[in-house]
Structure formats: structure tokens, C-alpha cells
Design a protein around this nucleic acid. Structure first.
Lengths: 211, 211, 211, 211
DNA sequence: AATGAATGAGTCTTCATTCAT
DNA sequence: CATGAATGAAGACTCATTCAT
């Protein structure tokens, strides 16, 4: 029993370390620049194990993207649940929400890696992009639009096109983080908070009902 | 004379076709995925010529990024000169400006390629990113901030931090073009105009003085 | 007892399925093209069992050739016993004999496989060929020569060199089956009968005493 | 001009040495056992040249088979032209013809190699076999059948089915050379002459008109 | 300057073989 | 005995780079 459990654990642990290593290397070097021996080494498994588990380089790449997409989808869904449906202080609450989205979805390591992989190889594997968009981006936009619509119905905001507002909200909250996004660095909380707050302020100046 | 001129032309023509081909292939395949024979062939020159002109693969890559950066800087500067310093109709004029920026700087072929190259290889060649940021992005932001400041001084806008507003303006006008930006497709003018106008409207709702 | 017997049976059964699978794969792919994992899988045993039983790839190959040689020797000997020592109808009886040789020795699956293995690897393992020739071909020729000599002594045939006649008999009866022999397909009985009969007819035209 | 001619010569010479080396190695080791580096080395060219000229291992193999097929077809056609249409001494002339066929078509190096390649890989590349049969074997059989028919019409032979007789003739003349054929050794002229003569004698005993 | 070849390193992939469970 | 992993050696194929013509 123990052996079985530990084998399972080791099996799953290996799977994970392969995905970790592969996403790191693919992210760092791109698909063609990635070296399977390096991945195997960083994963602490033998090259054979890579092949046993994933067949070949391309399939491994697809597996990595799939895993990251799944993970990020979960994280984004989770982040969306913190949307302030009944805000006590609109600016503060939206800022907290924006900060969370920035931290967990935009500037997280997995987010960075997934973005790089999809950006870098979407030309070669268009389906990557499709899957990513449908499972990730579109869902997040929808959820956010729904949240904003709720605020509008409750009189907090004055919004005509909720999907448009959602896209603009997302665009604004990342507008001050371009450098971090590009380089894959995670900004500290102060930076995140500042970027989020200025974005939310502008967003509210645009969408809070006047007079 | 003629021979000299035509030799010159042919020399410059070759230089250009090499840059064109190389940027296309590097953009498509990334640095490690690019094949110098393919570049030579697409450029219509011999492999030797690549080496004679550029020394080696990395130098060629750097030359491509340099050329694209120079070009894009010029284009952005040019675009900035169309900023409506004395607008007749603020929304229309800013929309026209935004459309121009979107079309020429964001969604153009060179813009797409340069972004891909920098994004893909900035990890490997950090100086690429530095050069690009300083010569391209920063200058554009400065110029735009100056323009916005002018509008504010003239009473058209109510802006505290002009650089922040510039970043947000740029973020907003591209917020509806993510797909095109990612895939490198150039949207038609209607799409560009719509995306630009909704962004400008939101921007103005946020920054036009009230009451 | 039962357990013992069934263990034995299973042991022998495994041995056989290994030989079957190995001969099939070696025959299909040649020595270097054969993959031990494939053999193990087709045999329904684990790779380890191959190694436990046969040591390594080369030894397994030799075992296969040995097994096939033994089997084919037995089959050929058996076929030779059907030689019509006292024919009632010479052409019919010799044709029946030829058909049997063709079917069991030349066109059988094991015959095909053994021929392929020996042909393909005799350059690498000359002793394979030696063993095969001595145990298989030579014996068969001798037996056939003896049979023909008997017919000659009984006045049915007019033969000077019985070994030569034996070789020619064998050459003739396979002359119409080259395609099947090469591709390893087993012709139907009609084809076999026709090929055998025309060969026997020619053989008899050459060796039946005149006048 | 000279340079051009010498380049051509060297080009063709390289092509030939590649084919020579490749046929030797493929013949010796089989398709999967053959090592392209060895072929390149034996051909005295670089590995790259192999790839430039032939694309990949499989295409090189096909090219080798094609070349050998073409060559052997020419040689067989040439041999067939020596068929004694108007024999002065039937046995001697047919023996000379048989010897020639044996020497040039059956026991020649190219014949051996082609046979090995086709036998060894016809399972994997059935089209190899098809091409070989149609361009080589079938043509040779037809030509021989025509020749025998001529002798029959002229009263030298008594033949019903010329194609059958042709196949039997070919089977007989190689019946004493099996060992050489299998091992790819070229027998000396005495052996060839003896094998051919005994075959022709039997053939004539079967097909010369009686009485 | 173009072409073709050579060199040498590198990378993906396969596979025989062994070891641990 | 089966399973899965590890190791190490090939081997096919690619590619940057250089050289000769």
C-alpha cells in the first residue's frame, strides 16, 4: 500500500517537476531553443522519462501549455470571485480586486510563462492561441463584464457596454506594469497597489455617474 | 556613373531585402528557430552575402532589431506630430490621432515584428530591450504626455499626471485590438476607427473637465 | 502437480510465444531493425523475461534461427518420407510430392522466415548459414537424391548424377513460385499444384528413359 | 570550360561514389543497419553532401535501388541480345548464353546487391519490388521466352508454353549456384561453365524434339 | 557574388541494457 | 515476473560557419 501510494506520489511529483522544468525552459528559450536534455536535468528525471510520458518535444510543449492554461483558468476564476459585488468603498474595493488580478493573473510566474509560450508560438500552433483565448481570456472578460453590469444595475456605475468596459478596465490596470509584464518580473505590492489604484481612479472618473 | 548608381542601388536593395527577409524569418521562427539559408533564400541573396554583410547570425539579428527600432521610432515620431494640439472637435481629432497610432505603430507589420523580437529575445539580449524602450517607448510616451499637457493647459482636459494619462491613453486605444496585436494581423480601418473611438470616449469621460 | 504442470506449460508457452514473436519481428525488420520492446509486447511477456531467458538480442536471434532450423529440418525430413519410392503413377505421385515440398518447406511461414533471417544476416553471422546448410539444405538434397536414385534403379528414371538431378528438381518446382517466395505469401493449393505439375512434367521429359 | 567540365565530372563522380558506397553498405547491413556516416565516409564525401543530394536515408535507399535496377535492366537486355537465335551447336551456344546470364545477371555484384536490397526490404517498401519486377524480371523473361519461341519455330526445340520454359531455363541455370548467390561470391568461369552446361543439358533433354 | 561542399557541433529520438520495486 | 525509470550509446538530421571555385 505504502509502496503504491509513494509510487503514485512519485509519479505525480515527477509529472509536476517535468511540467515545471519544461515550462521554465520553454519560456526562457522558446520552443526551438529549448533543449530536452536541459529540461530532463532541471526536472531531475531521465531523458527517457520525458519520452515515456510525453512522446516528443512537441507533445511535451502542448502538455505544458495545456497545464498552464488549466491552472491560469482556475486562478482567474478564483480572482473573479473576489469582485466587489456589493462594495463598501468602491475605489478601495475595486483597487483591491484589480491588485489581485494584476498579481495573480497578469504578473504571476505562470501567467508570464503562458503568455510567452502562446505569444511566441501562436504563429506555429494557432490552436494554442485558440484554446488559450477561449478557456482563459474570454471567460475572464465575461465574468468581469457580469460583475460590472451588477455594479451598474446597483447604481454604482454608468455603463453602456459592459464588455467594452471590462476590456478597458483590464487594459487600464496593466497599463503601468508593461515593463514587469514584458520581463516577467513580479512587482512588489506597493507597485501593484499604486498601478491598480491609478487605473481604478481613471476608470471611476469615466464610469461613475455624474451629478 | 550609372553602373555606380545601380551598384549602389543594388547594394542598398540587397541590404533591404536581407533585413526584410531576416525580420520575417526571425519574427516567424524566433532566433534559434531561424535558418540562415532560409533567410538568404527569401532575401534572394547567397548565404555568403549574409556573412559578408553581417558577420554572423547574432549580428544579423541585432542589425534587424536596430533597423526596425529606427524605423518604428521615426514612424512614432511622425505619428506624434499629428497630435491635435489645437483641436476643432476634441473627440474626432483625438480619435483620428489614436487611429493613426494604432495603425502605424501598434498594428503595422514592423511594429508587430519588432514587438515579437524584443519580447521573444529580451531575456537573452537584455540590451535589445533597453535600446527599444529608450528609443521607442519612452520617447513616444514623453511626446504624448507633452501633447496631453498642452491640451490640459488649454483647458480641454483636466489632468494631474500627464505621463500617467499618456500611458492610460495608449493602454485604452489598444484594448480592443489584443487579438490582432497578438497574431500580427492588421485590422481594417473600420475596426481601427471603432476601437480608437471607444477608447477616446472613455478617456474623455475620465479627463474632460466637469461642469 | 497441476500447478507444476501448468507452470511448465506456461513456461513452455512463453518460450514459444517469444520465439514466435521474435521470428516475426526479426523477419519483418531484420536484426538491427528489430526492437526488443516490440518483441516482448508481441510475445505478451515483459522485456525482463526476454533478458532472463535469452541474455541479449544477439542470443535471442541465434535462438530463433536455431529453433526455426530445427523445425524446418523436421518438416523437410517428414516431407521426404512422402517421396514415392514405388510410384503407381509417376507424374501424379511426383507432383504430389513436389506440392508437399513446396507447401511445407518452401512456402511455409517458417520456411519464409528462416530464409529471410539467413539471407539477411548470413553476412554478419556466417555460422548461421553454415548450420542452416548442413542441417537443412544438404540433408534434404541427400534424401531427395537417394529417392531419385531408387527410382532410377527401378527403371523409372534415367539419371546419371542423382545429386545434380535433385538440385534441378528442387529448382524446377519452385521456378513458378518466385513471387510468393520473395514476398512470403502462401499460394493456394491450385497454384501450388499447377506449379508442381509443370515442373514435374519438364523433369520427367528430361529424365524418363526414352524408347 | 575546364572548370565547368571538371566540376561536372566531379559532380557525377561523387554521385557515383555515393551510389557505390551506399549500395555496398545497404547491401551489407540492410536498411536499418546502415549508417549514413559510414556511407559518407566510404563514398569519400561529407555527410552533408549525402543530404544535399538525396534528402534523407530512405530517399537515398530508393535512389540506390533505382540505380541498380536501371543498371541491371541494361545488363540483362544486353545479355539477352546474345541469345543464339541461329545456333550452330545448340548445346554449346545455349551454354555460352546461360553462362553469360549467370555471370552478368545472377552472380554479378550489382545483381547480388539488388537482390539483397529488394529481398530484404520488399516487405517495407512493396513498390521497390514492383519496380524491380516490372523493369527487370518480367522484361528478361519476356525476352527469353521470345528467343525460345524462335528456336521452337525453327525446329530446334519442342515447346508448348514459352514463358514457362523460360522460367524453367532460368531456374535450372542457377540451380547449382545457390551458395554463391546467397553469399554474393562470384564463382570462377569453370564453375559457371559447368553449372550452365549441366542445366542446358537437362533443359535440352526435356525440350529437344524426339525421334 | 553565387554555388556546392566540408566541417563540426548540437539536438531529437531510439534502443539495448540494467536496476529497483 | 511485470513495471517504470535510468543510463549510455548511437544514429538521423540540422545548421552555423568556412572554403574553394
Amino acid at each position: 500500500m505504502k509502496a503504491y501510494a509513494s509510487a503514485l506520489r512519485s509519479h505525480e511529483a515527477k509529472r509536476l517537476s517535468i511540467i515545471e522544468a519544461a515550462s521554465a525552459v520553454f519560456g526562457r528559450e522558446g520552443f526551438s531553443g529549448a533543449n530536452l536534455d536541459v529540461i530532463a536535468q532541471e526536472a531531475g528525471v531521465s531523458r527517457q522519462t520525458l519520452y515515456n510520458r510525453h512522446g516528443d518535444k512537441e507533445k511535451l510543449f502542448v502538455a505544458v501549455v495545456g497545464e498552464l492554461t488549466t491552472r491560469m483558468a482556475a486562478i482567474c476564476v478564483e480572482a473573479m470571485t473576489t469582485f466587489p459585488d456589493e462594495p463598501s468603498h468602491l475605489e478601495d474595493d475595486l483597487t483591491a480586486f484589480a491588485l489581485r488580478v494584476n498579481r495573480d493573473c497578469i504578473c504571476s510566474r505562470d501567467g508570464y510563462l503562458l503568455r510567452r509560450l502562446v505569444q511566441g508560438e501562436s504563429a506555429r500552433y494557432p490552436h494554442l492561441f485558440t484554446g488559450w483565448e477561449e478557456q482563459g481570456a474570454a471567460k475572464a472578460w465575461d465574468a468581469l463584464a457580469t460583475g460590472l453590469e451588477g455594479l451598474a444595475r446597483a447604481g454604482w456605475l454608468d455603463i453602456e457596454d459592459a464588455h467594452l468596459a471590462a476590456r478597458q478596465f483590464l487594459a487600464l490596470i496593466r497599463s503601468d506594469l508593461q515593463v514587469y509584464i514584458l520581463l516577467g518580473e513580479t512587482p512588489d505590492d506597493e507597485t501593484l497597489e499604486k498601478a491598480s489604484r491609478s487605473a481604478v481612479r481613471t476608470f471611476l472618473r469615466a464610469f461613475v455617474p455624474r451629478g
